[in-house]
Amino acid sequence: MRLDISESEISQLLEIIYRRYHYDFRQYATASLKRRLQQALTHFQCATLRQLQDRLLKDESAFPRLLEYLTVQVSDLFRDPEFFLAVRQQVVPLLATYPSLKIWVAGCSTGEEAYSYAILLAEEGLLERSRIYATDINDQSLRKAQKGVYALDRMKQFTMNHRGAGGHGSLSDHYHAVQDSAVMSPTLKQRITFADHSLATDSIFSEVQLVSCRNVLIYFDRTLQDRALGLFNDALCRRGFLCLGTKESVRFSAYAQRFQELSGEQRIYRRVD
């Protein structure tokens, strides 16, 4: 049985995390946050959130470990191949009309999504004029993303994904195998800027033609989703593109009218004006 924790204990803990560590989880969806806090209690061998709270206040090294529970680091190269195929077929021809391109991957985790865009743009001849900003709140993941080193045994699945995404040539053109690792090519890395940025507390930093924020909004409540969508709306150029995860949509948000579907199925939208 799971340890029982109440909503009020959770909000108290989140308040302390916000004040002490300036990470704002106060408007995250509660059901999954609760599950992950229950797992964290087991990891920290605490019986109550109260104990965990005391630990956080006394021991600076506890927070980074808790952050691994509070944020979910799961990603793949060309996750949802049909989505990247739709980007290639429906979005790339329109992106090609811009003299220079800026793309924002929000909630990039360990970097796979950003590298997928870089590979796709390289294959479509657009990478040289592109800059990809890839942001997240998890520093440890950002460091991994910056290194661009993935376990070689994941490449089999990624190669299938890449093919499903309409990839030209071979995925192995874009990485070097070193022992049991795949190291992403420097030409991709040069085009990506990884940076710390929170959709909950930070503001926009550049005008971009495309925002990709996949499987991040599912962790937010509707108010925070609206904040993030507001940032995307403000960062996008006129008629800019917004890509969400396959089960996410702008439909239940305050910004429903601001975005029009380009591919309903693949959750690709354009800013209305």
Binding site: S32, R35, I218
Partner: peptide, 11 residues
């Protein structure tokens, strides 16, 4: 998430 809404996750 509540009596009013679902949530999804990729945990």
């Amino acid at each position: 998430e509540s009596r009013d809404s679902f949530a999804l996750s990729v945990d």
